[in-house]
Design a protein around this nucleic acid. Structure first.
Lengths: 223, 223
DNA sequence: CTGCGATAAATTGTTGACAATAAGCAATCT
DNA sequence: AGATTGCTTATTGTCAACAATTTATCGCAG
């Protein structure tokens, strides 16, 4: 226990820890898009000085979670509808690629893991447990992307997902959407289990595009 | 003229300018992958203090050009063969998406621009002017990605291209490779001009995959 | 001559202070 | 009343110094 804390402190410098913490606070909703991030306040909050805070904010800027305007400071990024649409389109091909790569390399254990996740989601859908479904959905996506074996892809994908969390209407997902999403997952997993890269790309790509469509229809005048 | 300088100074803070400058120096080859970046030295070089230098390095870290190891500093990123391969794979789908999007929205003027670039490259190939070809090649890629209208895509794509510049064997391209590349470009441009999104995706995707293949065959034991 | 250990130098990590810029506010003028 | 100017306050931008850590150097024993 004491070792872990030590290791964490050792492996990660202050700005890196800060970056994770500020990211957590932003994505957790404590700040809203457009909000100003006061450097002194953040420094005070974590009991450190402004230097490391600024470094952390620079990293967050590069990953698209905050914007900087000179002499005015850092602000939580505000994602317009068209920007969110752009993010979705990029995310679609990245996820398609993840599906394709995974179909080429998945092991028997991997297939088992996928089927287990699907079974859990089946249960969540039947129980109409939306909260659980969202959690499992994220786990499924994360597993696919991580198991694809391409770290560049995984990193980019997760960055985009974080950016999309800034787009508030995100959680407007209803029962029918959950059902549709689940069906698409089944097609994805089948293609992977069949080790069919082309079909996997198609299924994964379409899944994200469909998710974008569901979001679009939930809001008005997207794009 | 005076206005532009004013505007630049106004819109860009020191760390942002520094980031561009350090990036230029790294990609220009003044530093090699694995090289240590001395903060004091960099600060001295630009006549400023270490604070802004560290902020700039944090940004470069997030864009994958430098790595940081705690208490040891920043180093120019060293891209392994398998990492380069991963970058290529992601770049392939991004470029495919760019081609698809451009095919959906290109204007008559845009098609003219593409044909002009192709004509120039024709001349470069005939003259066996490798240097000119590389330059036009980059211009073509940049135009396609920028004209796709998806800024997220453009940003990610350019980031990956920069990362690949860290992979030295990059410039091992010979006469035959130039010819093959040129033929692939023709297929791409035809698909865009025909406003055929699916064909454009395919052509653009395969072009980058082929480029990866040419690089692979030039080196030994890639991946 | 080589390997080891202690000391010295260099480098990074962090801080607090100061300068420059922007935002808030009150008094004045039209 | 509304706009404008000037002042006050808050915030960001930058710096130089100090603490902590790592790297280099040198002496020394085997």
């Amino acid at each position: 226990m004491t070792l872990t804390a030590f290791e964490i402190l050792r492996s990660s410098s202050l700005p890196i820890l800060l970056e994770q913490e500020i990211e957590r606070v932003i994505l957790g909703g404590q700040f809203s898009p457009g909000d100003h991030l006061n450097e002194k306040e953040l420094a005070l909050r974590f009991g450190i000085s402004r230097g490391p805070v600024r470094e952390a904010l620079r990293s967050l800027e590069a990953s698209g979670l905050v914007d900087q305007v000179p002499n005015r400071g850092f602000f939580v990024r505000r994602l317009s509808a068209s920007e969110a649409s752009n993010v979705y389109d990029v995310r679609s091909v990245l996820f398609g690629l993840a599906g394709k790569l995974l179909a080429e390399r998945i092991t028997g254990d991997g297939i088992e893991r996928l089927k287990q996740l699907m079974a859990d989601m089946d249960a969540a859908v039947l129980a109409d447990d939306f909260r659980l479904y969202v959690k499992l959905n994220f786990a499924l996506h994360e597993f696919i992307v991580a198991a694809s074996g391409n770290e560049v892809l995984a990193h980019q994908y997760l960055t985009l997902v974080k950016q999309l969390k800034l787009y508030r209407t995100h959680s407007l997902m209803l029962g029918e959407a959950m059902h549709a999403s689940h069906c698409e997952h089944q097609v994805m997993v089948d293609a992977i289990a069949a080790r069919d890269p082309a079909a996997a790309f198609e299924a994964h790509f379409k899944h994200v595009e469909a998710a974008k469509g569901r979001l679009t229809s939930a809001t008005t005048n997207l794009v």
